[in-house]
């Protein structure tokens, strides 16, 4: 009681960090636009060159918003999985949900080899790719949950998740073997991850998916808190285990599945950000943790994207490589410093 939590302070700091990261992200890119001009454009002024306005409003702003949704959404789904599976190493990627999404995407992008007669190219519009990836991730998540009911042991579950990753990877390589170069290339580019290139329409769909997933997570916050004690304790507190579990699965499916569908499998944000957030917010209260994790994830993703963009050069690095380069050392550093990953 003596020590008042400083959450409001940290929330303000995170929001400021988000705004700063957003401005940096918007002002840097392959075409150098003076910072003042960037501000002028954002606030609706008239820039020196009309093309700058086009670059900022139709390319950089949607890209930055996508990065915010992806970073925040993946981080929240990672936090959900860590609590649900009682495992600090859980995350959308580790338990095969992203591999499920990639199987879904691969079946759509390269499935023509198997479904002779259909031209998949016609099928692949904004919606079908998102739906295919979502279905893929959702199916894998369901299977993992069914198995989770049977084994209960978290280590076994982690291994099962990894095995599902291997199985889907194998299926994807079978699909890849039977597909032509153009389809293969499309899939490989999808798997590199991409934050840019979403139209405002696609961004809208992604926004809705992330919003629903986020709202479901907040609605599950109370039950997630009870899960921190274990299922039997949760049950004794009046929590309906099955119902809340499904709510959490659906939230994760929407967040991780939807994001992977639009941006490809993006590594480590979901695993690392919840741990990073807990370094600052010394609480396990999900009502506080979920928004904080979202903001932290968004900031980190914006920064990763800024780096991937290789300012002033025309090249763009695969975002997936950058998040891994940032995320993996963070997890190692946390382990060395804390010796144990609590969640």
């Amino acid at each position: 009681m003596k020590q008042k939590p400083s959450y409001p302070f940290w929330f303000c700091l995170l929001i400021v960090a988000l705004l700063v990261a957003l401005l940096i992200n918007l002002s840097l890119g392959s075409v150098s636009i003076p910072f003042k001009q960037t501000l002028t454009i954002i606030f609706g002024g008239i820039p020196d060159k009309e093309s700058w306005r086009y670059i900022i409003m139709d390319y950089r702003v949607p890209k930055a918003l996508t990065a915010i949704l992806i970073g925040g959404g993946l981080a929240v789904s990672g936090a959900l999985m860590q609590t649900l599976f009682r495992n600090p190493l859980a995350g959308p990627f580790v338990l095969g949900i992203s591999s499920g999404a990639s199987l879904g995407a691969a079946s759509l992008l390269m499935g023509s080899g198997l479904l002779a007669g259909y031209t998949t190219v016609q099928l692949t519009n904004d919606f079908s790719l998102a739906i295919a990836a979502s279905i893929g991730s959702f199916l894998v998540l369901l299977v993992v949950m069914i198995v989770a009911n049977r084994v209960r042991d978290t280590m076994a579950l982690l291994i099962i998740g990894l095995m599902f990753g291997s199985i889907t990877a194998a299926l994807v390589s079978v699909l890849a073997y039977f597909s032509n170069a153009e389809e293969l290339q499309r899939f490989i580019f999808w798997s590199f991850g991409a934050v840019g290139g979403l139209s405002w329409n696609q961004l809208g769909i992604l926004g809705i998916l992330v919003f629903i997933g986020f709202a479901l997570s907040i609605a599950s916050a109370k039950n997630l808190n009870a899960f921190l004690l274990g299922e039997n304790y949760a049950k004794s507190l009046g929590v309906s285990i099955k119902k809340s579990r499904y709510a959490i699965i659906i939230a994760t499916g929407l967040l991780a599945g939807g994001i992977t569908a639009f941006a490809g499998p993006i590594a480590f944000i979901g695993l690392a950000v919840p741990h990073l957030t807990r370094q600052v917010f010394h609480t396990m209260e999900h009502k506080v943790l979920i928004p904080a994790v979202f903001l932290y994830g968004a900031v980190l993703m914006l920064l990763c994207d800024t780096v991937a963009q290789l300012p002033t050069s025309a090249n763009v690095l695969p975002i997936n490589a950058i998040t891994s380069l940032v995320g993996a050392p963070v997890v190692i550093w946390l382990l060395i410093r804390k010796r144990k990953l609590f969640f």
Partner: peptide, 12 residues
């Protein structure tokens, strides 16, 4: 209830 099983997270 107070059970014999340990609580899942001790970070509370």
């Amino acid at each position: 209830v107070v059970l014999t099983e340990p609580i899942v997270t001790k970070n509370l």
